[in-house]
Each structure stands twice: as structure tokens, then as C-alpha cells.
């Protein structure tokens, strides 16, 4: 564990909690892409199946359970509890345009053609593009609530910190995972446009 990975995980946790609290407190998911949240729930489900097969640390297990729990709770709030506030017309990105190519790529480019490894690779590739429906929705509505921009900021920051974590781990531990690194770069690059607006505007954002 290193400082980049720890702050990255905390940033990710902050993003997930911010979103969940925003929806719960305002009792509204206006401006939130339910499709991105479904994709994140799918990312965590396919990546954390190893909860059933291996124990790495209390921290690792605890965080995985929290991530999965919050992801499904968020999807539940959007599609069930506060369904009336879900803006389906603007959340029109076709998820199959992401899931199908990512699924195919995971079968072609992976470290090992085994069930868990393919699912892990699928989750890594999917996570790198899972935010697209949300960014697409903001570009369609033309604005985003301030709290939503904080959610996106911490979500984008987490994988950027992971890039530094991988530099650290390569230098100090010789750890190197090309699949995670390339996908992490793609994921972070997708936020660049948003980061620029977030830093320059500070307030509500129009992509």
C-alpha cells in the first residue's frame, strides 16, 4: 500500500458516498445517469467475485463490500425509490455500445484465459468507459449540479492517483500490469475535459 493508492481509494469512496448522499438527501436523481451507475455496479460485481475465493486483507475486503453495497444501493435509489425523478430522456447513451465491445476485447486481450481473469479484465476495460453515459447526459442537458461535479471530480481523481500508484509500484516493487495501466490512462483522459471545466469554472458546469 502507498499514499497514492490510499488517497485514490479514499477519493473513490468519497465519490461513491457523495453521490449516494446527494440522491438520498435531495430525494432526487435528477442529472444522474442511471446507466453509468448500472455499469459501475457491473464493474464491481465482475471485479470483486474474488471476495468468494480469496482473502487479501481486512481493508481490501471491507472496501469491496462497501463499494458493491453502495453501487447497488445507488442503482436501487435511481430505478426504484426515486424513479419519478430519473431523467430517462437525457440518459440515452446505449450501454450495449460499451458492454459488447468491452466484452469482446476482454476475451481477446487478457493476462490469462480463465473465468475470473476474463471477468477481471472485462471490469477493468468497462470501468474506463463507464462514465461516458454520465458525461454524455451532462453534455445533453448542458449543465450539472455542483454536487454532481464534485462527485465526478473525486471519481476522476481516484484513477489519476492510481496511475501514480502504478508508477510507485513499478519503481519500488517491480509491479507492472499493462492492462490496468492502459485502461486507467484512458479512464483518466476521458475526465480531462471535465477537470478543466471543474477547475476553471468551479461552479455549475456546462460541458
Amino acid at each position: 500500500m502507498n499514499i497514492f493508492r490510499l488517497t485514490g481509494d479514499l477519493s473513490h469512496l468519497a465519490a461513491i458516498i457523495i453521490l449516494l448522499l446527494k440522491i438520498w438527501k435531495t430525494r432526487s436523481c435528477a442529472g444522474i445517469s442511471g446507466k453509468s451507475q448500472i455499469l459501475f455496479a457491473l464493474v464491481f460485481t465482475t471485479r470483486y467475485l474474488d471476495l468468494l475465493t480469496s482473502f487479501i486483507s481486512l481493508y481490501n475486503t471491507t472496501m469491496k463490500v462497501i463499494y458493491i453495497g453502495c453501487a447497488y444501493a445507488t442503482v436501487y435509489l435511481i430505478y426504484m425509490k426515486f424513479k419519478a425523478t430519473y431523467d430517462g430522456n437525457h440518459d440515452s447513451f446505449r450501454m450495449e455500445f460499451l458492454v459488447v465491445p468491452v466484452g469482446g476485447l476482454a476475451c481477446l486481450v487478457n493476462h490469462d484465459f480463465s473465468f475470473l481473469e476474463i471477468l477481471w479484465t472485462f471490469s477493468i476495460y468497462l470501468e474506463s468507459v463507464a462514465i461516458l453515459p454520465q458525461l454524455f447526459m451532462i453534455s445533453k442537458t448542458g449543465e450539472a449540479e455542483t454536487i454532481t461535479t464534485h462527485y465526478l471530480f473525486f471519481l476522476g481523481l481516484y484513477r489519476a492517483l492510481y496511475l501514480f500508484n502504478w508508477i510507485w509500484r513499478f519503481y519500488f516493487e517491480g509491479f507492472f500490469d499493462m492492462i490496468a495501466i492502459v485502461a486507467g490512462m484512458v479512464q483518466t483522459i476521458l475526465y480531462c475535459d471535465f477537470f478543466y471545466l471543474y477547475v476553471t469554472k468551479g461552479q455549475g458546469i456546462s460541458l
Binding site: D50, K64, W120
Partner: peptide
């Protein structure tokens, strides 16, 4: 046979 990097990250 490619060595699979460990999966100790979230």
C-alpha cells in the same frame, strides 16, 4: 506462459 500480475488492488 505469461505471469499474471497479482490482484491486490481494488
Amino acid at each position: 506462459e505469461e505471469e499474471v500480475p497479482e490482484k491486490d488492488e481494488l
